[in-house]
Design a protein around this nucleic acid. Structure first.
Lengths: 198, 198
DNA sequence: GATTAAGTCAACCCATTGGTTGACAAAGCA
DNA sequence: TGCTTTGTCAACCAATGGGTTGACTTAATC
């Protein structure tokens, strides 16, 4: 039999792929929760259930691990991008992704001084979509599509970026799927008001 | 003559009030720029032009200094609050305050896990104002006033919370007053669309 | 089966960092 | 004018935290 992939990959004693993945996952959670500076490599290793030296071994240290994450999260963003769905649906998807570890990571990196290498193509495509929606009459045509996108993205990530403020306003924990759903509906309703000519 | 306040307070060799103020100001800048965890007490002291031991002397350490700031910034927020100005004006004020050191500090603390003791009364008042605006027909009545406030606050702080994203979308530095002004105008225009029945 | 390569870990290392100590100087007070 | 209090600083200290070392173990190769 083929010994190249026998012990089912998760039962094996040693499994580099798996270890790497565990570290990345743990790192996303830790970085997302506390931000880069406040995150301890020891905590990442502990969460991954692995020796902390392996961070150096696989990623060349804390910073390397962080950068690896920073460049990998674009996939997450991209999947919700596309399509000609109604704007409300797109926003709803965005609201929910802000509650993932990668979403939190994105928020932290946006505040930090050093520029993270975010995917420009994705943003450009989104701006273009805004313009199309304006032409289709779904959104007011007198607004700058870029700034409009910015405002909507910011609004959609409110449960993340204004977490404590949101909690104080609503009395609920904004980091729950239920809240996200409710909030997304409100946003959808809001953008509907932007197009509707009553 | 009264020696209690003679050397004009800024020329004196020793001036506790001034030192405290210098430290608070420097701390706001440093914390705002890098966040709590990444800020070094040495940097704060250096920026204030003062010995770092004085942080312990006056505030009982790094954390004490941070908390002092956290509880003091509400004044900043409150001043822009009130009034029956048009919503666009209020938002514009908010956009600009997000670019101050205190604004940045607020953003960081919103992301951090530990809850900062933000001023609840202020938020409640703002929610109430939203409701009034809805009743006055300035805003759609079918939206939850709290969530609406949240969305608008988030949108207004986009140049701050989505700094890098904003830069990539627009190609400009969102941390400039010029950008803030332009962005605020767009927001005003946007909320105008929310009320207008064309 | 022996040899090599790859993966993992416990222990150690040392730069950084927040905080403290003790000397000392300016200001208030008798 | 001397004594005390308050403000300030340079030097020092202990703890933390990221990174490295070297031993060891599993797995692939000959």
């Amino acid at each position: 039999m083929d010994q190249r992939r026998s012990p089912s990959a998760s039962e094996r004693k040693r499994d580099p792929e798996r270890t790497r993945a565990l570290l990345l996952e743990a790192a996303a959670a830790e970085f997302g929760a506390k931000g880069y500076a406040a995150t301890r490599t020891t905590d990442i290793a502990a969460r991954a259930g692995v020796n902390k030296q392996l961070i150096s071994y696989y990623f060349g240290g804390k910073e390397g691990l962080y950068k690896e994450l920073a460049t990998s999260w674009h996939g997450t963003a991209a999947e919700m991008a596309s399509a000609e769905q109604p704007l409300g649906t797109v926003l709803a998807g965005f609201v929910h992704t802000t509650l993932t570890d990668h979403g939190r990571l994105w928020a932290w990196s946006n505040l930090a001084e050093d520029s993270p290498p975010t995917d420009e193509a994705f943003l450009r495509a989104q701006v273009e979509q805004m313009r199309e929606r304006q032409e289709a009459g779904e959104l007011p045509a007198d607004l700058d599509p870029g700034l409009l996108l910015l405002a909507l993205m910011a609004a959609a990530s409110a449960p993340l970026t204004l977490r404590h403020t949101a909690r104080q306003i609503t009395g609920e924990d904004p980091a729950t799927p239920e809240f996200a759903t409710k909030y997304a509906e409100q946003l959808a309703s809001l953008v509907r008001h932007l197009s509707r000519r009553t």
